[in-house]
Structures are given as structure tokens and as C-alpha cells.
């Protein structure tokens, strides 16, 4: 399946069908639902796009799994796959941390970007990967997303970003913070040019990513139960010395408070995006002169 996504050339050593080492019970055979505890056969889980058929819990996805679910088979062309951080602060142990993350994920950093189609409609796309240093945003995430946005500008095609992030990449200090500004600047140009930007906030989207591109969509979507917030739950609980209710900072809570347009089940995500792309196709000829 994933092979279909990469018709052109092999960019990584190997892409195992399910490289996530985290959520697994016996290797590849069974998974336990984090929400209801149901034991699920891997095949069954995959059939349900990694959602629990019993309770609807959405398991986390790698960037490539996500791309495969959204894009037309064979349409993905990756950008800037080898871009890597220059470790601007020369931060202690950071290179080792990156090396470990690379070995575990076969990614160079926490986002994959490129161009593809959904139902034949072209788009630029960025998908973050939660496994890579908690999907944190450093210079590479900012730069790759900015370049994806510039592809949108050049080709006048919509941009879709799937966010999943613990926030800023602390080891890149102020440069991490500045990526919020960098991506926002490119998105401001998209806004001026009237180019559609769809943001999908997946579990979890927090910190500087929430306070920048994840909340800047013309349409902000999310998946059921996704944790979405600016400050972390534990920080808030420490601040107010109270326990917060379970539903606090869930996608449904954020929808109710007016910050999201729609919570979409993973099985409907592809068609929702396709519908939005289709509704935004054309250059405004329907409003007359």
C-alpha cells in the first residue's frame, strides 16, 4: 500500500507497513485500545483506518500513513526530504536525540511535506509526525511548511496541514519560536492571494503550533477526541490547583467554544477534504463581475 504512494524513487531505507513502535502489543498482530481496552487485531485496526471499531478511539498515525489515507494513490511527490536542523544553539545532547528519533522513525524531522492530489484536485500538503521528538516544531518543520505554502502560492493550489505537536522544539530555542512567525508570514500571503488553507488539528496539538498555523485555517478541522490547547493540562492544573474535567481541551470542547469548524471522523476525512477542495475550485467566477 505504501509502495503505491512512492512510485518515483525510494527516499528512505525501508518503510515498514506500520513503523510505529509505540502503541503496539505483540509485534504487528494485536493492539489494545487505549480508550476502551478492547484487543484489536492489527488487520481489523487497519481496516478501520486505525480507529477503534468499538469506541471510535483514534490511534495516532505516522505522517506517511496519514498521507496514504488522504491522497490519491501514487500522487505524492515529497519536497525537501533531506532538510535538517543546523542545531543553532549547539544544544547539549540534541544531536543524539535527533539520531535516536531518526533511527526510530526513519524520518529526518517531524514533518513530511509535498504535493499531491485528492480526487484529482491538486494541493500542497504538510503532515506532522507525532513520533519525532513529540512532533515538536523547530527550524525544519517551519521551513518545510513555509516551502509547502510557497508551492501553494506559486501554483495557486490549496494548502492542507495536518498538525500534531507537543509544541516548540525547546532545543532550538528562539529559532523554534520564530518558526511560528515564519509559517504565519507565508499563510498571510496565502490569505491575501485568496488561496484556501485547511488546517487539521490531530491528537495532540498544543503550544506554539496551536498558537500559529494550526489555528489559522480558513477551515479548521479535527478528529474526535483529539487534545487541542495552548497551555498543557498539567500546567493549567498546577496554576489553578484544581483537576480539570476530562473533556477539557478535547476537539469537541474546542468545537463547542468556537475555535474549530468541524470534528471529522477519520473515515470521513478524505471526503471532507475533497469536498472542501471542490467547493473552492475555480477563481470566483460565480460571483459575477
Amino acid at each position: 500500500m505504501l509502495k503505491d504512494l512512492f512510485p518515483k524513487k525510494k527516499r528512505y531505507a525501508t518503510i515498514s507497513p506500520h513503523p510505529s513502535a509505540r502503541d503496539k502489543v505483540p509485534e504487528g498482530l494485536m493492539n489494545k485500545c487505549k480508550s476502551c481496552g478492547e484487543i484489536l487485531l492489527y488487520k481489523e485496526l487497519e481496516k478501520h483506518l486505525k480507529t477503534c471499531p468499538r469506541c471510535g478511539y483514534h490511534f495516532s498515525l505516522t505522517a506517511y500513513e496519514r498521507l496514504e489515507m488522504i491522497l490519491d494513490a501514487g500522487s505524492f511527490e515529497e519536497f525537501d526530504a533531506r532538510l535538517t536542523t543546523a542545531d543553532p544553539l549547539d544544544f547539549p545532547d540534541y544531536q543524539e536525540k535527533l539520531a535516536k528519533a531518526r533511527a526510530a522513525t526513519e524520518l529526518v524531522d517531524a514533518v513530511v511535506t509535498g504535493r499531491g492530489t485528492v480526487d484529482g484536485l491538486p494541493l500542497a500538503i504538510g503532515v506532522m509526525d507525532p513520533r519525532f521528538v513529540m512532533g515538536s516544531m523547530g527550524v525544519v518543520v517551519g521551513e518545510r511548511l513555509a516551502r509547502a505554502g510557497e508551492c501553494s502560492l506559486r501554483e495557486r493550489i490549496p494548502l492542507v496541514i495536518f498538525a500534531v505537536s507537543g509544541g516548540a522544539r525547546m532545543q532550538e530555542g528562539i529559532f523554534s519560536l520564530m518558526q511560528m512567525a515564519k509559517v504565519s508570514g507565508v499563510l498571510a500571503r496565502l490569505a491575501e492571494e485568496g488561496i484556501l488553507y485547511i488546517s487539521v488539528l490531530t491528537n495532540p496539538t498544543t503550544g506554539g503550533v496551536t498558537a500559529s498555523f494550526a489555528m489559522q485555517g480558513d477551515v479548521n478541522l479535527s478528529e474526535p477526541g483529539a487534545v487541542i490547547g495552548f497551555a498543557g493540562r498539567r500546567i493549567i492544573e498546577a496554576m489553578i490547583r484544581q483537576k480539570l474535567p476530562d473533556e477539557f481541551q478535547t476537539a469537541e470542547f474546542v468545537l463547542q467554544h468556537g475555535m474549530l469548524d468541524k470534528v471529522v471522523h477519520r473515515k470521513e476525512m478524505r471526503q471532507t477534504i475533497a469536498a472542501l477542495l471542490s467547493l473552492h475550485a475555480g477563481e470566483g467566477e460565480c460571483v459575477g463581475n
Binding site: 508570514g185 489555528m215 489559522q216 500546567i235 489553578i240 475555535m259
Partner: peptide, 23 residues
């Protein structure tokens, strides 16, 4: 970092400023 700030969209408020200050 407080509950009311989250309810009223702390992330969205900052995000909006980041875009609009460019304009």
C-alpha cells in the same frame, strides 16, 4: 495558562495576531 483562556481560544488569539500583524 488558565481554563478560561483556553475556553476563549488563547491559541487562536495569538495565531490570529501573527497572521494579521504581517498585513
Amino acid at each position: 495558562p488558565g481554563p478560561a483562556a483556553e475556553e476563549r481560544g488563547q491559541g487562536e488569539a495569538i495565531a490570529r495576531n501573527l497572521i494579521e500583524m504581517f498585513q
